[in-house]
Design a binder for these strands. Sequence first.
DNA 1: ACCTGCGGGACGCCCCGTTAGT
DNA 2: ACTAACGGGGCGTCCCGCAGGT
Lengths: 199, 199, 199, 199
Amino acid sequence: MPKSEQGFETRSRILDSGRQLFAANGYQATGVAEICQAAGVSKGAFYHHFPSKQSVLETIFQEWLRGLEPALDLWRDDRRPVPALLASTARAARPAFIGDENSRRLLLELWSQTTHDQDLAQVALAPHRRYQDGLKAILDRGVREGSLRRHNTSTGARVLISLAVGALLQSLLAPASDDWANVVTEGVALLLRGMLKER
Amino acid sequence: MPKSEQGFETRSRILDSGRQLFAANGYQATGVAEICQAAGVSKGAFYHHFPSKQSVLETIFQEWLRGLEPALDLWRDDRRPVPALLASTARAARPAFIGDENSRRLLLELWSQTTHDQDLAQVALAPHRRYQDGLKAILDRGVREGSLRRHNTSTGARVLISLAVGALLQSLLAPASDDWANVVTEGVALLLRGMLKER
Amino acid sequence: MPKSEQGFETRSRILDSGRQLFAANGYQATGVAEICQAAGVSKGAFYHHFPSKQSVLETIFQEWLRGLEPALDLWRDDRRPVPALLASTARAARPAFIGDENSRRLLLELWSQTTHDQDLAQVALAPHRRYQDGLKAILDRGVREGSLRRHNTSTGARVLISLAVGALLQSLLAPASDDWANVVTEGVALLLRGMLKER
Amino acid sequence: MPKSEQGFETRSRILDSGRQLFAANGYQATGVAEICQAAGVSKGAFYHHFPSKQSVLETIFQEWLRGLEPALDLWRDDRRPVPALLASTARAARPAFIGDENSRRLLLELWSQTTHDQDLAQVALAPHRRYQDGLKAILDRGVREGSLRRHNTSTGARVLISLAVGALLQSLLAPASDDWANVVTEGVALLLRGMLKER
DNA sequence: ACCTGCGGGACGCCCCGTTAGT
DNA sequence: ACTAACGGGGCGTCCCGCAGGT
């Protein structure tokens, strides 16, 4: 491997191990030495690429958030009627609640850390708001196009996100096959019914 | 103070300090020495009352859960029509989302730890299920009494809890006065609309 | 050994090892682990007795300075004619420049650290001044009693101390049996000649 | 800048930073990375020019000693009567005790390190001896020319150096404007009086 | 020759949760 | 109930070497 690429390799190996271990044992309970061993690098290498353990967590968070961006873009471009769009979004999100427990654990860990780490909270806040705004925009469109009745769309967006976040959190405490995915799809369906114009 | 009560005093001072510090800095980041200092107790006293730091967390959790029981009983006894009951419950829960950030932080910390600690998860699971079952019972009654249309009440109960949990979690990331309390009451209202029998 | 005395034991073993190792290898180059090993105590015990490595150095310094106090008292009480007193003092100090290289090394180490550590400097300053004042008082008495001619006794005291300190420092760089002790006694004799009243 | 000179540039920048940082924070407490950063060089460059951190200290020492040589030569050539020569030398040395605290700190640091580093001690010993011999030669001349009374000139030389070194050391612990410069000039004057022939 | 990125571990100090003995 | 002691990490930093590139 050319020397120039090896740095990148090492860096991403550290991040991978971090993701895994933070999810499995928690951020605080995971030692730098542990990460290094799992990644097969020395502490020298670790601290060459990251100034601190915390920065690894931040980087992981940022990369994870960046992975969410495309979904947001798709949302914005989708011109289907709002009810259909929401329903299909809920369906599309199903896998996130079923497999890949690790990601969910990591998310909880991240969320938990934001409470004790201002920097991390800052990293999380902007994307969080953008998601909320994205949903609000959709609901607004629904009101405009007449498929949804008039209501506080900002709160509506928060309700939708709360539903998803709450389901995600509980899926970790009481795993139950595809149950929690259903909770979301069903919940969205119910909310939609509550928001629909006529009747 | 009689000697026999002093032990109780010490014990509860430790628990108080634990609650506060765990909420403020996280469970892992809080040291036993720190707790002892805040409680004004020696380490010897600490380990006289608790076998380990973890047991403090467990005790805190159990006491917190015990404080929730009365609410459940009230629920069971309330014979108001289901929609009214749910709406009033949502209103009653408002304070939990507004003041007292510490409790919410502590809950998140607790939840986060359940992921890494089987014992703690066990402690949490039964009450969680009872809450879910309590809500399901209410929804079932609603279906029976005809105020709600027929649907999967088990999932419905989970939806309601998810909404609450999600709102609680987000209130920690993006505090916003009474906003999150509104999210819950509004969300419940919307869901209720979606569950109502006909129109 | 009764438990109550063991604490003192441990503490003084740590101080002993500190004295030895700081003198031999320098303060910075000596690790806490090294001290613990030499003292036969655990790191836990170390940090039970001292809040930091630095505090060990400070304590050593203070104890060393306290050992000097009696000499000062003797000085004050001695009513011999000043020239005789100074000459005998110089003779009495001879051993300090000959054997016990370790103490001298430690002193240099201490002095060197005062440059980087305000606290340590503070600890050193008061005794240093008291020594100077003690000498000045003697010289003043000499002037009063007429054995010394009138001169700036404050500077004179500093000259005497400088002579001693300088000899001490050089004895470390260029050890030479009893040479450096002679330098002090001879130096004091010369200075005395320079200070004598008539002729 | 021609390539061949750049190496020299880099090298001297490292030495400058070393001088400054060693004086300010001590040799041990100064990291290679710190030096590199202050010098604006990479660690690779550092180790291209110097085999180790220690060698930087040694080089600094040697260069500093080399700067002292001219003074020695002047001494040797000066044919003034010895008392006048010594007095004027003391006056000439005044600035060294007043301004430029950094140099004195560095000297102490150097001296302190010689205690733990044989190589460094070796570097220091020869010049130290030459200074001593230089002074002895002057005193011998004084005896020969009749201005000084017969005495152990070797010890006398040591006394003079001790006075200077001791004053220098104390000037770091208890800075006092020009006080310490006076101590040296006054001390030399007193010693001179003690060495003078007649009376 | 000069310089650089990347890496390597050993070790820095300190603090952890915990047990013994009084 | 409390002081003393324990030993095993905690994270971060140390000084230093390579392989590669200019």
